[in-house]
Write a protein that binds this DNA or RNA. Structure first.
Lengths: 189, 189
DNA sequence: AAGAAAAATTAAGCTGGTTTAAGAAAGTTA
DNA sequence: TAACTTTCTTAAACCAGCTTAATTTTTCTT
């Protein structure tokens, strides 16, 4: 069943019955997307939270000069949306797009709240997810302040070698906050 | 009572009885600190989560060149720790220090878990806190990628004018990721 | 109120990383 | 497999922001 990736993931955080898991899974919609499809458009109301079963998504925005800048990638078992906009039901600051062909679960804001009300145990699941994600985002802010662009790339390549292979170089450059040209120069060394 | 700032804050997120709030508050310890006292030392086990009743804390680290870099400030009603290290009970990546004389509540990791177990409604409270904090951290990453250092300062001053008055300029520079010298130059214009 | 320490300013020289522009390589489609 | 499109590389000129260092101003301490 396509939703087993999610239920499996939930079980790593919670002690929970199969019966409940089935009901929880029913709150989500399954989608299959091809590479480079848009799931959320910046400036539009952000009403969907996504869970990646298989594949890769990115959230990005267009900077002053018209260049797309990747904020996050989400691969298997990651959650993605514009969390602030989703929570406040405001316009999204980011575009969300598939980087690869992807299988995804989605949930609307109202369903998400209904889920949390009917299954309060999911509060614990998301509390842990966000607690980790928040901590990690702060570590990223630390890295941005600590390392030169060259070090950023080298560290990232050491930490996630398979991922560096997986995404196109210009997206990696965008995520790491440097130009594709400079990344190319770094690699030459 | 010194803990009323916390219970008041919790009430803005949850419908909850006074009786429960009193019990919840009993999990926390009250401390009063003078300016520039250290609450958590980098490299030491991170076993405390802090809530600011009054005053201002910062988390910072020392970069390669020996310069302190501020990651976050926490003022009234904010939570602060090294969230990743706290959760995993690892050594802290950050120093946490008072910027002003401050009144603070603290809770240890084991008490925190006990609190969440005994009062599952607090899962919802922290889920919402972290969800917002995570979303905000990602917006900060967006800003770091979008704006020049000059724009960073001007935007920040427009958004939080009272806070810019409140903290020393060198800490603000550290938080915004520029040198005090350059900040000084920007202000002159 | 004096002296010491911490914070802020000013200015000149320097550099990591961008911009621009053009060509080479790799993917995609028919 | 040819034509087209997307991605990657190379190189030179350029600049936002840093470094260094000296001076001034503000804040702290007694």
């Amino acid at each position: 069943m396509t939703k087993s990736a999610l239920t499996k993931h939930i079980k790593t955080y919670l002690v929970i019955s199969e019966e409940e898991l089935t009901q929880i899974a029913s709150f989500f919609d399954y989608h299959s997307y091809r590479k480079k499809e848009t799931l959320i458009l910046a400036e539009k109301r952000c009403d969907q939270l996504f869970f990646v079963i298989e594949g890769c998504l990115q959230s990005y925005f267009i900077d002053n000069l018209g260049n797309p800048k990747t904020i996050q990638f989400a691969i298997e078992n990651w959650w993605l949306t514009d969390f602030l906009a989703f929570q406040n039901q405001k316009r999204s600051n980011f575009n969300i797009e598939t980087v690869e062909n992807s299988e995804v679960l989605s949930i609307s804001f109202s369903k998400y709240n209904e889920l949390l009300t009917k299954f309060p145990v999911m509060e614990k699941y998301f509390r842990e997810i966000y607690q980790t994600a928040y901590g990690s985002a702060l570590m990223r802010l630390k890295h941005v302040n600590t390392f030169s662009k060259e070090e950023m790339f080298l560290k990232f390549r050491d930490s996630y070698p398979e991922f560096v292979q997986r995404v196109p170089q210009y997206l990696l450059a965008s995520f790491l906050g440097l130009t594709p040209e400079y990344l190319s120069e770094i690699k030459r060394k």
